[in-house]
Every structure is written in structure tokens, then in C-alpha cells.
Design a protein around this nucleic acid. Structure first.
Lengths: 104, 104
DNA sequence: CGCGATACTTCGTGATACGATGTATTACAC
DNA sequence: GTGTAATACATCGTATCACGAAGTATCGCG
């Protein structure tokens, strides 16, 4: 899939992945893998970015002798998901423009 | 609208704008303006990129004393539009994932 | 003559995805 | 008990990209 097209979805996908319950990096990647491939370096960059933007909070906890960072979505994060939904209808309008011109 | 989301559409929008008939930079911007805002610097960057990728061809012609560069889509450009359509169904799958997680 | 519209160009910057590489522990097979 | 895969996170450098700013030049109109 086209990288540029994917770009706009990554942040929101990560937010969606932690929306129902908190999760951690490694699990987020595994959860998203069937739908969207993303490398670890990309994911951790995104998580850091979303944390800076206050769209999620982090807590570190030990699990089976290893440290894990658990990410939890914030209200700002949920608002971001809502905004995405309205952006999506705009995207659909543009899609129709593209396919309309295409048909001629 | 979110810039990242827009990114994936710009190239394809420009291709769609010259798909039915050849056009030139200034007109492309005006045609797209109601749907997608894009600055001149962005457009000309995109046109150069698409030319390098052989998705369009350019011819320069004089019009009312001014030089215009007319852009015409190529077969590769049309294939790109086709690819975009299949990418779009993938995008829709991801969208459903995001809104599904969102509902919980 | 001045100004806005037309038309294209170049430069610098900030944001971003990602491969490569590194660190460290656990679980399991041989 | 040793190696190897899986788990888990971090950092660095690079390439791509959108865009604002600024510039050049012509035409039409008041």
C-alpha cells in the first residue's frame, strides 16, 4: 500500500488500538499487523509523539521480569478520533472527485 | 483537514485533474481549490515529481504572450489511478477497524 | 502608471516513516 | 546448559514531502 496514503492513518490507528483498553508497544504492533504493517521504530516514534501531544498517558510496570510501558488514551486522544471521522467524509468527497474525473 | 491525511491524495488528485484533458499549473490549482487547498509551491513540486516518475508529460506553449506548461497524463499515470482505487478499499478496511475500536 | 490576476520557480524548514542497530530478559528446544 | 527465537523498548541517520516566503515576468484594466 502507498506509504503516503498510510501516513494519515497511523496515528489514529494507534489511538484506536488503545481505545478500548490500555496496551503496550509490542502488543499494539501485533494487533495492527494484519491490517497495517508498521515497524517498531515507527511505532515508538508515534507513541512518543502522541504522548507529547497529550493524546495518551504512559505508565511503566513490570511484567514477568520485563519492563513494559502501558499506554492509555486521554480525552484529547478521543477527540482526535472524532475529528478523524469528520476528516474521513471529506476524504470520501475527494475520492469521488478522483474517480469521477477518472471515468471520463 | 489533517495534513497527513491529505498527503496521500495530492498526487492522485493532480493526476485526476489532468486525466480528462491536459491542463496547466494555475488551472489545476483553481480546479482543485474548492476540494483541496494546495499552494503553488506544493503543486509545482508534485508536477515535477510526477514528471520524473513518467506519470505525465509536459509541453510548453505560448498563450496570450505568456508561457504555459501543459501537462498530459501517461499510461503509467492512469495505472497509478487504478492502484489508488484498490488502495482505497484497503483504507476503508482500516477505517472500519478504527471506528469499530472506537465504539467500544 | 499602478495594481491585481496570471503563471511558473527556487530555497529553506519542519514533520515524518523507516531501516539499521543496539540492549536486555524470558521461554523453549536440543 | 547453551543457543535461538520471542518479547520489549530505544536511538540514529536518511529520504521524502508539504509549504511558506520570496522572486521573476506578462497582461488587462482603471
Amino acid at each position: 500500500m502507498d506509504i503516503q496514503l498510510k501516513r494519515g492513518l497511523l496515528d489514529v490507528c494507534v489511538l484506536a488500538a488503545i481505545n478500548s483498553e490500555e496496551s503496550y508497544g509490542y502488543k499494539i504492533i501485533k494487533d495492527m499487523a494484519p491490517l497495517v504493517e508498521l515497524s517498531e521504530s515507527t511505532l515508538y516514534t508515534i507513541l512518543k509523539r502522541l504522548e507529547t501531544a497529550n493524546m495518551l498517558t504512559v505508565r511503566t510496570a513490570e511484567h514477568a521480569g520485563r519492563l513494559r510501558k502501558y499506554y492509555r488514551i486521554t480525552d484529547a486522544g478521543r477527540r482526535r478520533l472524532e475529528e478523524f471521522k469528520s476528516d474521513w467524509s471529506e476524504m470520501n468527497r475527494i475520492y469521488r472527485f478522483i474517480t469521477k474525473e477518472d471515468a471520463q
